[in-house]
Design a protein around this nucleic acid. Sequence first.
DNA 1: AAATAAAGTTTCCTTTTGGAAACTTTTGTT
DNA 2: AACAAAAGTTTCCAAAAGGAAACTTTATTT
Lengths: 208, 208
Amino acid sequence: MTDQHQQDIYPSMTISTDQHAQKIEPIKLGERLKEIRKTLGLTLEEASQKTGLARSTLSKIENEQISPTFQAMQKLTNGLQIDIPQLFAAPKQVNTTGRRDITRNEMGKVHPTSTYEHELLATQLVNKKMMPFKSTIRARDFDAYADWIRHDGEEFLLVLSGEITFFSEYYEPVNLQEGDSVYYDANMGHMLVSVSEQDATIIWVTAS
Amino acid sequence: MTDQHQQDIYPSMTISTDQHAQKIEPIKLGERLKEIRKTLGLTLEEASQKTGLARSTLSKIENEQISPTFQAMQKLTNGLQIDIPQLFAAPKQVNTTGRRDITRNEMGKVHPTSTYEHELLATQLVNKKMMPFKSTIRARDFDAYADWIRHDGEEFLLVLSGEITFFSEYYEPVNLQEGDSVYYDANMGHMLVSVSEQDATIIWVTAS
DNA sequence: AAATAAAGTTTCCTTTTGGAAACTTTTGTT
DNA sequence: AACAAAAGTTTCCAAAAGGAAACTTTATTT
């Protein structure tokens, strides 16, 4: 593979998948459970009925007096309609807010390859869900590529100027002109070539 | 709030957060554990040393003879360097591939509001991580809005034509011209107004 | 402010887990 | 193939979990 636009060299080029964001948990299971039960507006008795666990058992779990068996935990999650990950990760989901990153025209971080010329946008921001960039498609031919480009996540692109052919593993090639856009699974092999007189430029956004 | 561009009326307007994708698990914990241990190339004895659980206990767990306590599960996950969600969800992660959706210029699904005129893109595709759309900014004034727009996720926008002012809750307003772009947390209040002669158009991508 | 009801905790006891060691099965070596 | 070593299972028992009911605390009603 000769052309990969996420190199993970710089943090700003990395997409936050929320999965890896999972940290180690010296989890206060009981506390968390109580929290959930309260949110649902249930008493121990009601929770007991829903889960099939004795009221006393629930109390002990909530007060960290016992460590529930996996069996008990399943009854809990089933009865209260929560999934296991939720039981753990959920408590303090630091939902970021207030971040903003402006990239002026032509002021992105340039990242040229043999086939594309990428201009990465919003590179000041780290740990974001999407990675946006403007690209100029230098490739003029199918075999400018050694192989399909293929990586995790989903991708969206919109043609800003010029015209391209969008090749993909499972579809016939298709031409895209200014204003046209495609959304596709990026682990399906794909590649772009310019077919207009001028090299085409596109806006590209990736999410994992 | 008068203007919300994700209405969740149509599935195609919904963003897949991967969190809700989590399904119910009548999980074969033992089987799964054995799988993991094998993958790591560990014997019961080695796993025992890493986790601090007796070899016999591990055996029983793997053969579903006992239901481990949460405590035991923590020792497991810590010792084997796996996270709890992984213990459950992980086995068969259906990674979609092969989807593709082309939207020709001006052929998106139109969705007008008082302040914006949205043209939703890739609406054939459901359960995607991003929601892309082109918008024409009709608002000409700060108080075309009843309140800040604010919703989950992160947003990226790039000005296609015209000029806008980007207002946001925690920053001074900033002008953006053709080619300029912003990436921001969408739960920070935000709003756009056109300031160019013609109403500005932008490309907008949201992810949750 | 008693009296009553509801919610939550603790006790007591049965069932189950978890560990040490005995036992069985599998793998590798001569 | 017999033997040895390693890996895995089962047994036995101490320790901990889970449930029923007694008990305590917190709300609600009179």
